[in-house]
Write a protein that binds this DNA or RNA. Sequence first.
DNA 1: TGTTAGACTGAAAGTGCTTTCAGAAAAATT
DNA 2: AATTTTTCTGAAAGCACTTTCAGTCTAACA
Lengths: 336, 336
Amino acid sequence: MPTQKKSPTIYDVAKLSGVSISTISRVLNAPDKVNSETHKRVMNAIDQLGFIPRAEARARALSKTNRIGVLTPFFTAPSFVQRLRGVASALSKANYELVIYPVDSMDHLQGYISSIPLMRNIDGLIVMSLSLSDQDAQRLSNNGMETVLIEYSHPQLNSILIDDLRGGHLVAEHLISKGHKSFGFLGDIEPPERFTIHPVKSRLMGFTQRLGEAGLSLPDSHIFSCPYTQEETKQAADKLLGLPKPPTAIFAASDMQALSVMKAARQMNIRVPNDLAIVGFDDIDVAEHVDLTTVRQHLDESGRLAAEILLSRIGESNRPLQHINLRLQLIERMTT
Amino acid sequence: MPTQKKSPTIYDVAKLSGVSISTISRVLNAPDKVNSETHKRVMNAIDQLGFIPRAEARARALSKTNRIGVLTPFFTAPSFVQRLRGVASALSKANYELVIYPVDSMDHLQGYISSIPLMRNIDGLIVMSLSLSDQDAQRLSNNGMETVLIEYSHPQLNSILIDDLRGGHLVAEHLISKGHKSFGFLGDIEPPERFTIHPVKSRLMGFTQRLGEAGLSLPDSHIFSCPYTQEETKQAADKLLGLPKPPTAIFAASDMQALSVMKAARQMNIRVPNDLAIVGFDDIDVAEHVDLTTVRQHLDESGRLAAEILLSRIGESNRPLQHINLRLQLIERMTT
DNA sequence: TGTTAGACTGAAAGTGCTTTCAGAAAAATT
DNA sequence: AATTTTTCTGAAAGCACTTTCAGTCTAACA
């Protein structure tokens, strides 16, 4: 059993180096204000004891935690993860810690939203792909919690939006240019959880809109709404491809769902892209691996951006609110 | 501009309800020890003010943070993410917060390891797929930081191990049973970063071992070591499949790399599984989507388990150390 | 009616740091 | 040499809680 030596405090360092605790603190936080002789002696003591300031104590005294939180739908979907990755990379550069609050129910979300700003546990908050009530947004804003929303917006909070409508346009334009006449759509149009975001509707709308403008149409019978799960998406894809006259091009509202369409096609011996074109949405990492044509929404970038906005606002809180619209981009690969 | 009303403290509540702050604390932390009349009055005041105890203050007073940290290679690989998911789900049940420390360099790791246990910023630590020096492990243990290692072990810390050797066996057995005679291997055998783990070597060793036992062999020319990136893996796969007499079965050390092999095969019009069998390792989510035969290592489960062990040790620190070996399982899908 | 056990409650100490303020010492100026 | 300025340092307040300890009040008991 190792000797559980309790870790040294600033007082121990003070005693060892023969100065007061204030001087220790000064050596650490304003080294230029202390005599170089004293500085050296203190640093020696610090090294000798292996002293590191307790984070909580520091946080209390400074009333800042150097920690930012991310509220995210329980991270199942790779797209959330990739955003998170962007956030993490920006924070790690700035020496901020990253706390994750996974949300898997409305209650959960409410609980977080009402306690987080008051606990003062984090210096800033990023809310990913979750819809906030006006009241919740107010609460965050009123309590002075710096916040950036991703995929959602509110006049009093920073936000980063994806132009899903435009995404639909891009897909339609691309497929039209490839000469397709008959289309299908598959996506999680009406997520059962009311706290999540519905970008899929907009993607569909953009898609049909642009098709319509070109004199083409997407019959309701070719629109399949299905939950995000692999199981159910696969079933929907089977149905869609099993139609008497299946479409020659399918737009799946997310890359993961596009994978299920590809799987269904493979099993039915439908050749992609010869007999069937498939377009996804997100451009997650695997999209490149499976050569999927998709709409890139710069997931990493959106996360990084959110973190950067947050940090800049934490630094100077009189910076103006930012509302950013991220550009989308169609990435053509082998499935179209 | 909203009135930036600073959030109420325990003192405000005390004043409003006409009792001392100790009573407020008691209402919150030991409700049965306070008169029900007083209790009600205090609760009213709390509700009225919307009081929530400041987490840092609480943490300082209790010297526990209700927060656990995960040290992970900067989360690029889906397998890390899936572990993380398991951790998150266990923690969220137990009402613990999850802090992520992404590691992308040796320095980074060293910095974390030496400061984390002393900052007392978290109650426990999970170290995922990172190799710790004996000294580092000692430091964690000596400073009383409860720790669980995943994919690595040390006598003084809890650990969860994957039997990679056995994984190699499973793959060999499976491919042999399918009648294959000529094999290839592709994986990140020697990661350049010394701080990460080398499970790939063991997988390869198990693979060749079992092949050898069956009188079969894996020639060195069929072993390709390549970094994890999609780009380089793809190149290696191209070379392997471009050999004059390419193998009929390839074992890729991770699912993501198996995807690159599949991509290469597709581009060369090599039919899977007819002309080529492919086996991956990990069983990440996408494996099912692309119908990849692989070795399941229960990623979610390993994370969840780690979290549970940690929490139980935090609860009662005299619980014995645990060293767990996770079972592997071959999942047969369409690529073999 | 006097006692005493039991239930509540408030004062105060503890938690480990930062920062302000004022004073002491040293250095620079006249 | 006297005065002013500058540089350093220590004391102490503050940060917002929890918890122990001792004391007060009530109610029950003799």
